[in-house]
Computed example of a mutant assay.
Amino acid sequence: MIKVTFIEHDGTETTAEGDHGDSVMSLAVAQGVDGIVAECGGGMMCATCHCYVDDAWFGKTGPRSEGEEDMLESAVTEVKPTSRLSCQITLSDDLDGLVVRLPEVQV
C-alpha cells in the first residue's frame, strides 16, 4: 500500500493508503477527504481535484501534461508552481509518503 497525506487548508491532515496505479484523486474520494470534489470523476474536465504537491515531492509526480496545464490555467484561481490535478497523479512505489495540500475552495 502507498501512503498519501492530504493537508486541508485549515491544517487538518488525513493519511490514506492506496494501491499502485490508483490516482491521488480516487484515493481521496474513496477516503472521503474534504477538499477534493472530483466532479468529473477524473476526466480532467473540471479542476475540482486541484492540489498543491509538497515541494519535496513535486519532482517525483512527473510533469504536467499540456491538457493539465490548460485546465489549471483556465479553471483555477491560484495556480502555483506545484499545482496539479490529483486525477493526473498515479500512485507508484516512488510516491509512498506523498504529501499534498488542498486549496481552501475548489472551482
Results as ranks from 00 to 15, higher is better:
A30G: 06
D34G: 10
V79R: 12
M71S: 05
E39V: 00
Q31N: 14
D70T: 12
A38T: 01
V29L: 12
V100L: 15
Q106V: 06
R84S: 09
D94E: 15
V24T: 07
C49F: 04
E73P: 02
M45R: 08
T61E: 01
K60F: 12
V53R: 08
E104F: 06
L72A: 10
M1W: 00
W57A: 13
S23D: 00
E68V: 04
L102M: 12
V33E: 01
M71I: 10
E17T: 07
I36W: 05
K80W: 05
M71P: 06
H9L: 02
T61P: 11
T48Y: 03
I7T: 14
C87L: 12
A16F: 02
P81F: 11
R64L: 15
S74F: 06
V79F: 13
V76G: 03
R101L: 14
A16R: 12
L102C: 12
G62Q: 11
A28E: 02
G35R: 05
P63G: 10
G67S: 10
G18R: 02
H20F: 12
A56G: 07
S86Q: 08
S65Q: 06
S83E: 04
V29G: 03
H50Q: 10
M45K: 09
E104R: 11
T5P: 13
C40I: 00
H50T: 04
D94H: 10
E73D: 14
T90R: 15
A56H: 05
A56D: 13
K60H: 12
V99D: 00
D70P: 01
V53K: 07
C40S: 00
E69M: 07
D94M: 14
T14D: 07
E78G: 00
M44S: 09
D22I: 00
D22K: 11
E8K: 15
A47N: 03
V76D: 08
R84A: 09
M1A: 11
K60G: 03
K60R: 15
G35W: 02
I7Y: 02
D22Q: 15
A75H: 13
I89T: 05
E73S: 09
D19G: 08
V79K: 10
L27K: 02
E69S: 10
V99L: 11
A38H: 04
A56L: 05
D10V: 09
F58D: 10
G62I: 08
R64T: 02
R84K: 15
V76Q: 07
L72W: 06
T15C: 12
T14F: 14
H9D: 03
P103A: 07
S23H: 06
S26C: 03
C51I: 13
E66T: 07
L91H: 08
M25V: 05
G43C: 10
T90P: 06
A16Y: 02
E78I: 04
T77D: 11
E17V: 03
V76M: 11
E78H: 08
T5E: 05
V37I: 15
T14E: 07
V24A: 12
G43M: 13
M45W: 00
E104N: 01
F6N: 04
C87Q: 04
Q88E: 10
L91P: 05
D34R: 13
D10P: 08
E69I: 11
M71A: 08
T90Q: 14
A30C: 04
Q88K: 13
V79M: 11
S23C: 12
L85M: 11
A16S: 02
V107T: 05
P63K: 11
